[in-house]
Design a protein around this nucleic acid. Structure first.
Lengths: 178, 178
DNA sequence: TCATCCATGTAAAAAGTTACATGATTTT
DNA sequence: AAAATCATGTAACTTTTTACATGGATGA
């Protein structure tokens, strides 16, 4: 369950509520989950039971009470252990279009061209949405140059992967025509 | 549920048993599911209830009976409809390493270098495994040049995505050193 | 002899998503 | 007047994985 480590990692940068976590997860797409309540509030409960986080209740008038979660020293230790000692999994890809393309042997050439173009459009749309998400993020002050650089590269990663898919697509489109 | 369409697509190339489907799915990694019994046998039942496939029982002595599944004309129609009319989803990525890297701000530079190297190794290993899987596949005779070309490109797709990840990684590694 | 292959299926659990529920405040 | 924001949580469902169960044949 890397989801719980993800929220532990977010709490390591800043104490916050489940609702704050939800918004962060929904905004950044490298955190690939939907950011639904169920996972977040269950995850926080689990982290609390393991003494990796604590919470402090802040009452507000005219607004629901907040539970502000904070990572514990044990939590920091566990997070560090996860980063350094857990296996670095290779990325996983779900490309349903490849399955559709693999089934396309009965189609006419122009039908294949059509679905290739549809895939191209859907990726281009996705890239635009990603870039829009990045533009809306407020810049966070970073401790040092390395941290800033890494953050920039993480933001670039997904877009780079989508753009690589476009390059591959272009090769397919050109190969079909000839 | 693209899984059911995937098995429908496999049955479109050739009639076969659930066990055959299982092996095919486990071998080709662009079919990203585990290829477990539960999904396959339930999927086949579902396709059968919708009259998209039929089966013929073949008794064998000294071996368990086979149920050989065949796609129906209705199944072919439904598959074609899925390929042409369903939305072409952009690819989805799960990169837990990006989360680990995003949590790395408390680490020393040499610790970051270490986890970057671990990620590099895990991707390189994955590429080797992918290429080995491709080498073991017996070449299938193709109807025409286009189909053959598309098949070749599908095989190249995942490896291309892994290699793009290596390129990105190299940029990160170089940026950290300076 | 012990493991793997063939071939079917079921059970149980984990992981993840959508929708429901509440209720005040602010924005459209 | 309707919808969105804030803030918590639960319920129901789908999807996916792991493990269980059977049993003869074959291979190391």
């Amino acid at each position: 369950m890397s989801f719980n480590y993800a929220i532990l990692g977010l709490l390591n940068t800043k104490s916050m509520t489940g609702y704050d976590l939800k918004k962060l997860i929904q905004k950044s797409s490298f955190l690939y989950w939907s950011g639904n309540n169920n996972q977040i509030y269950k995850g926080l409960l689990h982290l609390q039971n393991k003494d990796l986080v604590t919470n402090e209740i802040e009452h507000q008038d005219g607004a629901p009470s907040k539970k502000i979660y904070t990572i514990t020293p044990l939590g920091k230790k566990e997070l560090r252990k996860w980063i350094l000692e857990s296996p670095k999994e290779p990325p996983e890809f779900k490309k349903d279009f490849l399955i559709q393309l693999a089934c396309s042997s009965d189609l006419e050439t122009d039908e294949i061209t059509t679905i290739l173009n549809q895939y191209k459009e859907s990726i281009e749309m996705k890239i635009i949405m990603e870039q829009e998400l990045l533009r809306r993020q407020e810049p966070i002050p970073m401790r040092n140059k390395n941290v800033e650089f890494i953050w920039k590269m993480i933001k670039k990663n997904l877009i780079s992967t989508y753009e690589n898919e476009l390059v591959w697509l272009e090769t397919v489109r050109n190969g079909i025509k000839n």
